[in-house]
Design a binder for these strands. Structure first.
Lengths: 95, 95
DNA sequence: ATGTATTGTTTGTAATATAAACTAGTCTAT
DNA sequence: ATAGACTAGTTTATATTACAAACAATACAT
């Protein structure tokens, strides 16, 4: 292979967008991610779960102004994976 | 959306690799792509078909040394799509 | 108490990815 | 000439994935 494999967890539009946002802000809640990504809630919920299962993000559930609030933050493992993904896909992009 | 949508035809590891190769070489046959990508023949066949159906590549079938030979080349539409994909995904990568 | 809004989760369907199995033909050695 | 191995792909079957619609649980408003 001339091409490094692309982490399947990250090679998804919405999950990659979420990770990109979390790398930048360090912490973001469900609505922040919802708004920034433009995703549906259902899809976002699923992809957050997948990122959490991969230990790429941490998810803290609490209440904010009486409403449930889901806080996401990137994990060290997630940051590393993101950086590796960036390196890997750049290989594909340089034409 | 802060993030431009990613062309689903290109947001696939093998198809992206094929396009990346074809952008560089302008013309490549099945075995060239097979070797460079490390894909299985079955998978490569399917993805070449999809790229052709999207009019991102042209496919010319002929015979070379008595064996069937499938020559792929990027199309103007494909080149444009590839460049747009590159632009779009870079948005996700700059953390 | 009834309706509407908020914040998510679960489920159902359709699309996708991939390797294994298959097809069609060619070369080699006997 | 034919059996066996090889080349060059294609088709298929299965498993996974993506995503939106439907659902749930609570909160707020009238």
């Amino acid at each position: 292979m001339s091409f490094a494999p692309l982490d399947p967890v990250l090679h998804n539009q919405l999950r990659l967008a979420v990770m990109s946002l979390l790398v930048a802000v360090e912490e973001g809640d469900f609505n922040f991610l919802l708004e920034k990504t433009g995703a549906t809630r259902g899809n976002l919920s699923v992809q957050i779960t997948k990122l959490k299962e991969a230990d790429y993000i941490t998810v803290k559930k609490s209440f904010k102004d009486n409403y449930p609030n889901t806080l996401c933050a990137i994990s060290p493992k997630g940051l590393k994976a993101f950086e590796q993904y960036v390196t890997a896909i750049k290989e594909y992009l340089k034409s």
